[in-house]
């Protein structure tokens, strides 16, 4: 049986891991290469690195960082942040990423999904969706949550998969960094409708939040940052908890 995946996420700015609340108020959480190696040793099922810095040198330094992390870990590795062309996708894969996560540019230029899927295969194209509840509807936000759109999150997820995305990374902006639990309703809605795996993100605070998002939210994987970075939840402990609660995990 396919195991549910636990995915630590490294939000990286200027070479350091950072984490905020509701996408703002960043604080330092350590060296990304060290954290990556630690999570790999703790049996994380996958690692996501999202580059949130915005300097001109970003692309080159990101490729270097991806190389250093990829050399350290023997689990799947997804990289995202500022990817705007299929060439960017190729460069990150060449640096050692296994998948790339595309967010803003997929909304602005949806053909990047189909082009990248055609060149590199759907299995390495992750569509990242930052969703926020506004007027009782989940809308897609861009540019790290700074730019609102009128796009419905479910519609966009379905469209993204048609275009070639092989996986959805779904972040609830309302829940992100609050440690008040994953957004179960939206996760379940999207996960039961789209034919590709859905990674739930945003809001992890307790062990029970994870079992809830797998059992009730029908997520295929759960991503979290601060609970892991600051030692509040240890991955081995989390996996034992999930297993004892009937969630299939790799132990």
């Amino acid at each position: 049986m396919l195991a549910k995946r636990i995915i630590p996420c490294l939000d990286v700015k200027d070479g350091r891991t950072v984490k905020g609340t509701n996408f703002v108020g960043l604080r330092d959480a350590g060296d990304p290469v060290e954290l990556a190696a630690r999570y790999c040793a703790e049996d994380a099922d996958e690692l996501v690195l999202l580059d949130i810095s915005a300097t001109n040198e970003r692309r080159k330094t990101l490729a270097e960082l991806v190389k250093r992390v990829a050399a350290e870990i023997n689990i799947p590795f997804t990289v995202g942040g500022g990817i705007s062309t299929a060439d960017d996708v190729g460069a990150l894969l060449d640096s050692g990423a296994d998948k790339v996560s595309i967010n803003t540019s997929a909304v602005k230029h949806p053909e990047i999904l189909s082009e990248a899927a055609k060149n590199f295969g759907s299995q390495c194209i992750v569509l990242a969706i930052d969703a926020k509840l506004a007027d009782k509807a989940w809308k897609v936000f861009l540019n790290g949550g700074r730019v609102a759109t009128d796009i419905d999150a479910l519609d966009w997820a379905k469209r993204g998969v048609e275009l070639g995305a092989g996986e959805i990374l779904l972040t609830s902006m309302n829940a992100d960094g609050t440690k008040a639990g994953f957004e179960i309703g939206l996760t379940r809605t999207i996960s039961t409708v789209v034919p590709v795996p859905v990674i739930a993100s945003g809001g992890a605070g307790s062990l029970a939040d994870f079992s809830e998002v797998f059992l009730d939210g029908c997520a295929d994987a759960a991503l979290a940052a601060s609970v892991f970075h600051y030692g509040q939840i240890a991955i081995p402990e989390l996996k034992r908890f999930l297993k004892s609660n009937g969630v299939e995990v790799r132990i």
Partner: peptide, 10 residues
Amino acid sequence: LKVPHTGWNR
């Protein structure tokens, strides 16, 4: 089932 088959399996 979701396709591709993605993740850790036995």
